[in-house]
């Protein structure tokens, strides 16, 4: 198996006793793979992503990042290698300027000032937002905040990127820009989204969750063309496959 991978075996989790949000989830995602996580509201997509970075303790089964079990003692190691982009950028960004926010993680990992500067500049460059370096966060548009959010995790040089609804609240231009940026990353990516067109454009593999269970796992094009399967689980064909313009 490749060095960088995520493995889940029979994972179940619930916020309340006897009420599972996720039930017997098992899959493996490997190096350079881009995996789309789709499902209707409440299917458990965000919960699954949060389990991977240890934000939700108390699960059953086994969650491993590069053969290391996700538990309290291993969280610093796992979080240094796993970047998580929140659904709401306002929750992700908490410093005053883009630079300060992007430099936050490298500084916390005790890197010297010149390395912090190098990583921050590279993250800004990769997300094409060098011009936003000293801009105040509260003055940014939704699209700008989303790109800064992605840059904040790129400065950690993670092996794995997890994204929760990355295209939410983005206009068509910013969305296209985001897709281009995501496609240039070679990290292992797991992208949870309702935006099936985004999944179609960025992920080779898709996992369909329904009421906390994996009901399909395979090539994206195959799953997203299966109208019957999607409709059975409260989803619809992507607009691009219906021949309609994407919004």
């Amino acid at each position: 198996m490749s060095h960088i991978h995520i493995t889940l075996k029979d994972v179940s989790f619930g916020y309340e006793k006897n009420k599972n949000i996720l039930t017997n989830i098992s899959f493996t995602a490997r190096e350079q793979e881009s995996v789309g996580l789709i499902g209707a509201n409440g299917a458990g997509k965000s919960t699954l992503l949060k389990l991977l970075v240890g934000l939700l303790p108390g699960y059953q089964g086994s969650v491993e990042i590069m053969d290391t079990a996700v538990k309290k003692e291993t969280l610093p190691w796992i979080r240094e290698r796993t970047g998580y982009v929140f659904q709401d950028s306002d929750s992700q960004l908490f410093m005053s300027t883009a630079y300060e926010d992007i430099a936050f993680a490298p500084r916390n990992y005790g890197l010297p000032a010149d390395e912090v500067e190098r990583r921050t500049a590279r993250a800004l460059d990769l997300t094409r937002i060098t011009h936003l370096r000293d801009k105040q966060i509260y003055k940014m548009s939704g699209g700008e905040k989303k790109l800064v959010s992605i840059a904040t995790i790129l400065s950690m040089s993670p092996d794995i990127i997890l994204m929760d609804e990355p295209s939410i609240a983005l206009d068509p231009k910013n969305r296209r820009n985001l897709i281009q940026i995501l496609n240039q990353f070679t990290h292992l990516k797991i992208i949870a989204s309702h935006d099936l067109d985004l999944i179609l454009d960025t992920c080779q593999r898709t996992i369909l969750l329904s009421r906390g269970n994996i009901v399909a796992d395979g090539p994206t094009a195959e799953i997203l063309k299966n109208q019957k399967l999607l409709e059975q689980h409260d989803l619809e064909l992507p607009l691009s496959l219906l021949g309609r313009p994407q919004t």
Binding site: E80, G83, F86, A105, N108, Y109
Partner: peptide
């Protein structure tokens, strides 16, 4: 949520600033 975001980026109770 902000605290979660901070802890996911290595925050352990102290801000570092150059």
């Amino acid at each position: 949520e902000v605290y979660e975001s901070m802890s996911l980026r290595g925050f352990t109770g102290e801000f570092y600033d150059h």
